[in-house]
Amino acid sequence: MKAIFKREARSFFTGMVGYVAVALLLGFIGLWFTANCLIYGTPDFSIVLYSSTLIMLFVLPALSMRSFADERRNKTDQLLLTSPVTIPQIVLGKFFAQLAVFAVPVLAACVMPLVLTAFGSVLLPGAYATLLAYFLLGAACIAVGTFLSALTENQIIAYLAAFGLLLTAYLMEDIQSLFTTGSTLALIVFGAALAVAAALTGLGCRSLGAGCAVLGVGAAALFLLFRLRPAWLLAALNSALDALALFAPFRSFVGGMFSVSAIVYYLSVTALFLFLTGQALERRRWN
């Protein structure tokens, strides 16, 4: 894992990607820091980080897009997968290398709240807690991008897919507010999800019966739920959509609160997508 981490981290800085990513993140954090804190005089550093989550959407997929897509295209994954290292070691080595690049602007931003103390009283624990959440949010974004990179051998597709997915997560609350969610909409959404799940099951097991069985049982359960407890269906849809709003929990830190649930959420998302990345690599060996 150490070997992969070192090679990966070095490759970000032998090319331009690492420098550009660090420069962009640091540049925009600095811009908002100057505008909000230094000129306008806000002592709240979390506002700066909140604004700059937008930049993550553009920059972090650029870090993760190459990770597995490029290995596969250049067939260098043959070296990794035929060496005595495990797939989790490969995935973690690559993930931590990207995290190390992302850590550079975050560490540099650690100085900024200290600068503010020269002008007045600043709530330092709050500022550093927000930085921690910001770092974990970035880690989750990187894990999502790494997973998508493991699904394709084209890094442009990996970038666009990661950007699209993160943008959807970023805008999830707006998207939710576009629709007046009623239980009928919930039924339609869950019905569509069920149809996709049934089709995947059918294709995965290569049997029409299995797919139809999943569809039949699922449809019956959904319909019963819709007739008897429509409120449950609506609540389920809302919480499912809330769970997809990756950037929303970060907001609680901006209010000055330390949210343990947000930390757990980001760590879980990271772990889930790294696990899926490993599964995607393993699956490719079986195709």
């Binding site: 090679r7 490759s11 032998t14 250049n74 067939k75 260098t76 043959q78 070296l79 035929t82």
Partner: peptide, 13 residues
């Protein structure tokens, strides 16, 4: 030790 058909080399090293 394995040498695949296309050597798995990283061009930037």
């Amino acid at each position: 030790g394995y040498l695949p058909e296309q050597p798995p080399l990283y061009a930037d090293m």
